[in-house]
């Protein structure tokens, strides 16, 4: 996080999700349930220069993330880092990590999967590969790849 970018829109308390792969900032907002006014400042920068190319950045005032939300971000933007800001300072910085075991975050794309029927179960996946991202449904054992995963985050 360079000084210059922070100047664009410094936030007092909240989070900065940095190093989002280019073009995926809107997806990140969507999976965090930010699709309309949430009553606090949200800013998004797309296609900014970074050390290794281009990236997107999302900043949300007065918002903190639960473990589950971090996992969701990891599935959409595995390269992202989440900075927790308190009183204009980064107090914590974590890299998101693709979980080995994904419960209740993604819906299986297989229409014939038992998890897509009216049954009292939560969709469950195992991570087969992190790069490229491939996850396997614990029930129907079908694989899902990154673009399908993004479309099926619950």
């Amino acid at each position: 996080m360079t000084e210059q970018i922070l100047k664009v829109q410094k936030i007092k308390n909240g989070i900065v999700i940095d190093h989002i792969p280019c073009g995926l900032a809107l997806k990140v907002l969507k999976i965090l349930g930010i699709e309309r006014d949430i009553g606090s400042t949200v800013s998004m920068v797309m296609h900014v220069k970074s050390k290794y190319g281009w990236k997107d950045i999302v900043k949300i005032e007065d918002r903190f993330l639960e473990e589950k939300e971090l996992d969701k971000i990891a599935l959409v933007a595995p390269t992202a880092t989440v900075n927790i800001i308190q009183n204009y300072k980064v107090v914590k910085k974590h890299r998101v990590k693709v979980p080995e075991h994904i419960i209740g975050i993604v819906k299986c794309t297989n229409p014939k999967c038992i998890t897509n029927q009216r049954e009292p179960i939560t969709p469950e996946f195992y991570t087969v590969s992190k790069d490229p991202l491939i996850i396997k449904c614990r029930y129907c054992e079908r694989d899902m790849e990154a673009d399908e995963i993004i479309e099926n985050i619950i």
Binding site: N110, K112, C113, I114, T115, Q117, R118, E119, P120, I121, C137, R138, Y139, C140, E141, R142
Partner: peptide, 28 residues
């Protein structure tokens, strides 16, 4: 639901064999 059918049948038997049109139903 299949889950209910299984819980009921489980009380009547010692081992369950299942054939079902939906994928992953045996895991359930």
């Amino acid at each position: 639901t299949l889950a209910d059918t299984i819980r009921m049948v489980d009380e009547y038997s010692d081992v369950i064999v299942i054939r079902h049109p939906y994928e992953g139903s045996a895991r359930l």
